[in-house]
């Protein structure tokens, strides 16, 4: 009678488990590297809380160059991870990738007085990795959730900056941040969220909104809102609306 277990089965399964282990080890190395670049960038970016806007021209180029190393690592990750089922391993990198996305979002927002927000597609161009993929295409990409989570985290950072910019005497930046955060908050309310991590993080946006509103309120109470809010007309208007809400 045939044996209970096919003799070739053991080796077949063993080699698959070993392959899986190797893949994970390699991924961990790349993800570690990404993590280091991201932490460094985050560290640099934390200086915005003590750097007046006039000094940005010296700070931001440093951020930019460290973002470049992140992008390089992400493309390494993308090349490696695309050989395997994306969702089998994406838990390994989704957090550092979110953090990386948020540094890029924050950097671009700060780098121009018009405060551009990178959309998912421009972000994917920035990293030159694809966005959401059709089901028949299994490769590395940036997911919708990752983008949204990254957005939540820059909202947090900016709400802190709103306070600190006032301390640094840059009241118009606080007003600009307030407009931006309120717009994003309205945007997030368009989403239908489930009880998951995204929902939990999005729920925290209201505290950021409250924080910046308080700052703007303090400013308007004391007549410290810059007239025409340093070029951004709508910002002043937003501050005017503030009281009735």
């Amino acid at each position: 009678m045939p044996p209970m277990i096919d003799p070739s089965l053991f080796d077949q399964i063993k080699s698959k488990i070993e392959e899986d282990t190797t893949v994970r080890k390699e991924l961990e190395q790349i993800v570690d590297e990404l993590h280091q670049h991201v932490s460094f960038t985050q560290g640099l970016l934390s200086r915005i809380h003590s750097t007046p806007r006039s000094k940005y021209p010296t700070l931001l180029p440093q951020v930019e160059s460290s973002i470049k190393s992140q992008v390089a690592t992400v493309s390494k990750l993308s090349a490696f991870a695309s050989q395997y089922p994306y969702y089998k391993y994406n838990q390994k990198w989704t957090r550092p990738l979110q953090d990386s996305l948020s540094t890029v979002l924050l950097y671009t927002w700060l780098s121009s007085p018009t405060h551009p927000l990178l959309t998912p597609s421009s972000l994917s161009t920035f990293y030159s990795v694809p966005l959401n993929l059709p089901p028949n295409h299994d490769a590395f990409h940036i997911t919708t959730e990752e983008y949204l989570l990254a957005l939540v985290s820059i909202i947090d950072d900016l709400s802190r900056l709103a306070m600190n910019s006032v301390t640094l005497g840059d009241t118009s930046l606080a007003v600009e941040i307030s407009t931006f955060i309120k717009d994003l908050h309205a945007g997030f309310q368009v989403l239908n969220l489930k009880n998951d991590i995204l929902r939990k993080r999005v729920d925290s946006i209201k505290y950021a909104v409250k924080k910046v509103e308080d700052v703007v309120y303090d400013l308007s109470l004391r007549g410290l809102i810059p007239p025409a809010a340093a070029g951004t007309g709508e910002a002043g208007e937003a501050a005017g609306e503030k009281k009735e809400e």
Partner: peptide, 8 residues
């Protein structure tokens, strides 16, 4: 649950 969605 085809392709990328199998593991998703």
């Amino acid at each position: 649950i085809q392709g990328i969605n199998r593991y998703r």
